[in-house]
């Protein structure tokens, strides 16, 4: 509508550029330059070559870590979906008050520092913790080692990332018009077929959103796998940190970081083409 076009925007003017310039310059210097630094280091440390990439892409150790990272991320995403979908459904189906309380809990979990949550899992799964105590009580003489395994880090990551999934799915579910479900029922859809043909397609955008978000965050997750995972089953981020901190191997660390970045951006680019990146965090 003509009436909504502002007077300023009719002729090209400098205002938007002036307003945008400080941030653009800032991001160029303090965001892009460090990234370019990583790219350069991946080729120049310790000397100019593509040896780092050759090692990262073909070395058995690195391949194993990449594979492990992918498997873990996929597993965490799947688990988040299995945990998140039923809860979102339950929230949507329950009374406003109950839904509100569950939402408060999820939000609180979301806002609680993930270091705190990681620590809590350490307590829960520790050798003096309640789960081991429970296992002892029901007859396990020597309970299995829970902490510092792939199990503990995966479980904690599911817990940390589940709120992303729940909120994404819930926000889509809440917008589904109940009349639509009722009319589908009146047309003969029930049980699984109702879910398969009505609910699932309608909530698909939320599922896609949640899965992409959880998967991408999980790929680059550093803290929790390092603190709770097994040292023998590292993920990429942990290995990058290890290379830098222990060996000061900036070339290798940078090359791995670039590969991780490329994979992450590729996934997000696919999402961006399909849905638009601003929707992902919206």
């Amino acid at each position: 509508m003509g009436a909504t076009i502002s007077r300023l925007s009719e002729k090209p003017n400098l205002w938007p550029w002036l307003l945008l310039a400080p941030l653009a310059i800032y991001l160029a210097i303090f965001f892009l330059v460090p990234l370019i630094d990583v790219a350069i280091m991946s080729f120049t440390e310790p000397r100019l070559s593509i040896a780092n990439y050759q090692k990262v892409l073909t070395g058995a150790l690195y391949q194993k870590v990449f594979l492990n990272t992918f498997m873990t991320a996929a597993l965490v995403t799947l688990a988040c979906l299995c945990v998140g979908y039923p809860l979102a459904y339950l929230m949507n189906a329950s009374k406003p008050r109950t839904a509100m309380l569950i939402l408060l809990l999820v939000t609180m979990s979301f806002w609680t520092s993930f270091l705190v949550r990681t620590y809590a899992w350490m307590v829960l799964l520790g050798n003096n913790g309640p789960i081991v105590a429970f296992l002892r009580a029901v007859g396990f003489e020597t309970p299995p080692q829970l902490l510092f395994t792939r199990f503990s880090s995966t479980l904690a990551m599911v817990h940390i990332l589940a709120p992303y999934m729940i909120m994404n799915i819930y926000s889509v579910m809440r917008k589904i018009d109940p009349v639509l479900i009722r009319s589908a029922e009146s047309l003969g859809a029930r049980g699984f077929s109702l879910f398969r043909h009505v609910y699932l397609p309608l909530t698909a955008p939320g599922i896609a959103n949640g899965c992409v978000l959880v998967f991408v965050i999980c790929l680059g997750f550093y803290v929790t796998p390092v603190l709770l995972g097994s040292p023998r089953e590292q993920m990429i981020a942990g290995l990058i940190g290890h290379q830098i901190e222990e060996f000061l191997a900036f070339g290798m660390g940078s090359a791995m970081a670039m590969v991780l970045l490329a994979i992450t951006l590729a996934i997000l680019a696919i999402y961006h083409r399909r849905f638009g990146l601003d929707k992902l965090w919206g």
Binding site: L27, P34, L35, V216, G220, Y222, I244, T264, L265, W281
Partner: peptide
Amino acid sequence: LMPLAVPHIVMAVGYYSF
């Protein structure tokens, strides 16, 4: 939105050097 898309560990390596 890009700073949100880049894994923090990648930025950490960059900042460490930069």
